[in-house]
């Protein structure tokens, strides 16, 4: 299963709810404002790191770049994808839950 999050974790609880309610083995894709949750040094970084133990986390590269966030600041284990990668993930995973 693929979970997508597009809201900043500092404005909405979408990312936290996603981390709480995504099962082991599922994938999470952060895009739009949610990419701010993919970098180190934030107050949610520990929760994101912990989720990486049993889930894959992806971040949409163009949204990171647009916000001036360098890929070198990403939390270890998060993978960067482009739009094609986003589409591949959606196709590959059976169902998609959008944490809007």
């Amino acid at each position: 299963m693929l979970h997508t999050v597009n809201k900043s974790p500092f404005e909405r609880n979408s990312l936290e709810s996603c981390l709480r309610l995504s099962a082991a083995g599922s994938a999470i894709l952060l895009f739009e404002d949610a990419v701010v949750g993919a970098v180190t040094g934030t107050n949610i970084a520990d929760k994101v790191s912990a989720a990486l133990a049993d889930r894959e986390i992806y971040v949409l590269g163009p949204d990171l770049a647009a916000r001036g966030l360098d890929q070198s600041k990403l939390i270890d284990g998060i993978k960067v994808v482009d739009y094609g990668g986003f589409v591949d993930l959606s196709v590959e995973k059976s169902a998609v839950q959008a944490w809007v």
């Binding site: 995504s22 099962a23 599922s26 059976s94 169902a95 839950q97 944490w99």
Partner: peptide, 12 residues
């Protein structure tokens, strides 16, 4: 989380 992971379609 387990119930959700078992769905074919999820509408949010």
């Amino acid at each position: 989380a387990e119930v959700m992971a078992d769905q074919d379609v999820v509408l949010s």
